[in-house]
Design a protein around this nucleic acid. Sequence first.
DNA 1: ACCTGAACACCGTTCAAGT
DNA 2: ACCTGAACACCGTTCAAGT
Lengths: 217, 217
Amino acid sequence: MGKPGPKRTLSGDVIVTAALALLDERGAEAVSVRGIAARVGVAPNAIYTYFPDKAAVLRAIVDRLIGEQGLEVLAGDRPWRERIVAVALGLRENLLRHPGAAVLMMSAPMDGPRALELGERLLDVLAEAGLPPDDAARASYALIVHVLGSIALEAAEVDPTKPAPPEAERVAARRLAFAAVPAEVFPRSAAAADVMAAYVSEEQFRWSLGRLLGGLA
Amino acid sequence: MGKPGPKRTLSGDVIVTAALALLDERGAEAVSVRGIAARVGVAPNAIYTYFPDKAAVLRAIVDRLIGEQGLEVLAGDRPWRERIVAVALGLRENLLRHPGAAVLMMSAPMDGPRALELGERLLDVLAEAGLPPDDAARASYALIVHVLGSIALEAAEVDPTKPAPPEAERVAARRLAFAAVPAEVFPRSAAAADVMAAYVSEEQFRWSLGRLLGGLA
DNA sequence: ACCTGAACACCGTTCAAGT
DNA sequence: ACCTGAACACCGTTCAAGT
């Protein structure tokens, strides 16, 4: 139904998919309007039929990735802390698959509908946990800050122009870097080098999230 | 002393200062090698005498800003939590003066000497607080994640191309944005709109940092 | 409505050359 | 050693035109 219209070889979704592929394969600076257009086989300015500018394409990538996180776990019947940890782990896993995207999440206000939905479900859980509304609101923000901050710092450690390395590899690379810390001037950092290498791991992610959750209620 | 050498009209510091000024006055995308060169009155490629590439200039900005944070408070005799809150507030205040720089802190590993120094002093405090070395190491990372994440999300809310607005103005702008949230579909978000508007405030920053600190020891 | 061609005002970086 | 001029291979975005 509806008139066919001229060509319609394109769509916002196709553009976002191409942009994300570019981001994953060749890193943030490869995500150019011209690069996206070339990948979908179209003239550069055709992109502007679907997005007002490049920044809008980047925001759409963020929205897509947030939306990929299912929120059903939050409504489950496990203890509330476990449910929050489960979504946080899901977000982490997905975002680390797109390391270049992590920093995008912190570059603009996340005010899209998917972000609001995530926030609202988080408020549900925290209310159920017994927090008064004001504390629940503050706590939900603290959680989002912590999860996104962890992921961004973790993603900053990986080279986005090559396929995402397994965690063990990231930790090993960091251990190597820490071996160079002079123990005379930074004794504690040098002594804790093994732990500091493991900053970029799920274990550290779980640990710090657990401590924050412990402080919240 | 020492031969004068040809010109020496430039230095790494001068370049970083110019880049930071550009960042503050006209936002992240105005920080170009050519823009910096123009501001210091030099040919674009002169920058490459002091930095291998643009990314190195950005890292130097991060290092400069970390270095501006005095660490004496950490060694004071107030209760340890208060000392950590004090440096965190200092970092926040300084970074919000350079909103475009906040996201740079999360874009690359912070492995410079100033970052190491900050980490080491944090470990001092946490050891003094009675944490075993492994926990202290994990805790210091959790704190850094939280502080930088908070600041980045807060800075994402301000337009970096105009002078940093006072906090009250940022909160008011956000309250206005939240007034549009449909209460039927996001009841909790709408009900807590006032608190959510205040996410971008020192009060929220103190609150969530306090909860994290409570969970750590 | 959707797409193209051509153009404008920019980029980062490299290279050979001047002092 | 430090800086310049000129060039290369790119950018994002706009405008007029075609279907």
